[in-house]
Computed example of a mutant assay.
Amino acid sequence: MADEDIQGVIEELVAEEHRLLEHRDGRALTDDEHARLGEVQVRLDRFWDLLRQRRAERAAGRDPGEASLRDEDTVEGYQQ
Rank of each mutant, 00 (worst) to 15 (best):
E4R: 10
D5Q: 13
I6E: 02
Q7Y: 09
G8A: 14
G8W: 05
G8K: 13
V9K: 06
I10W: 01
I10C: 01
E11M: 08
E12M: 06
E12F: 07
L13E: 00
L13S: 00
V14F: 06
V14E: 13
V14N: 07
V14R: 12
V14H: 05
A15N: 11
E16H: 00
E16M: 05
E16N: 03
E17C: 03
E17K: 11
H18C: 09
H18M: 12
R19I: 04
R19L: 11
R19Y: 06
L20V: 02
L21C: 10
E22A: 10
E22Q: 10
E22G: 04
H23K: 11
H23D: 12
R24I: 09
R24F: 03
R24M: 13
R24H: 07
D25C: 10
R27M: 10
A28L: 11
L29E: 04
L29R: 05
T30C: 06
T30P: 03
T30R: 09
D31Q: 12
D31A: 15
D32L: 12
D32C: 10
H34L: 10
H34K: 14
A35H: 12
L37M: 04
L37A: 06
L37K: 06
G38V: 02
E39S: 13
V40K: 00
Q41Y: 02
Q41K: 10
Q41D: 06
V42N: 05
R43Q: 14
R43C: 05
L44G: 01
L44M: 07
R46Y: 05
R46Q: 11
R46M: 11
F47W: 05
F47D: 00
W48H: 12
W48D: 10
W48R: 09
D49N: 13
D49L: 05
D49H: 08
L50S: 00
L50E: 00
L50V: 00
L51S: 05
L51A: 10
R52A: 15
R52H: 11
R52S: 08
Q53K: 05
Q53T: 01
R54C: 04
R54N: 01
R55L: 13
R55G: 08
A56K: 15
A56R: 15
E57K: 13
E57L: 15
E57S: 07
E57G: 07
R58K: 14
R58H: 06
R58I: 04
R58A: 14
A59L: 11
A60C: 10
A60Q: 09
A60N: 14
R62K: 11
R62Q: 12
D63M: 09
D63V: 06
D63E: 11
P64N: 03
G65Y: 08
E66D: 13
E66S: 12
A67S: 10
L69D: 03
R70F: 03
R70L: 14
R70E: 15
R70T: 01
D71K: 11
E72N: 07
E72D: 12
D73E: 13
D73G: 08
D73Y: 15
T74K: 08
V75L: 07
V75P: 03
V75F: 08
E76K: 15
E76C: 15
G77H: 07
Y78A: 13
Q79I: 15
Q79M: 13
Q80P: 15
Q80R: 14
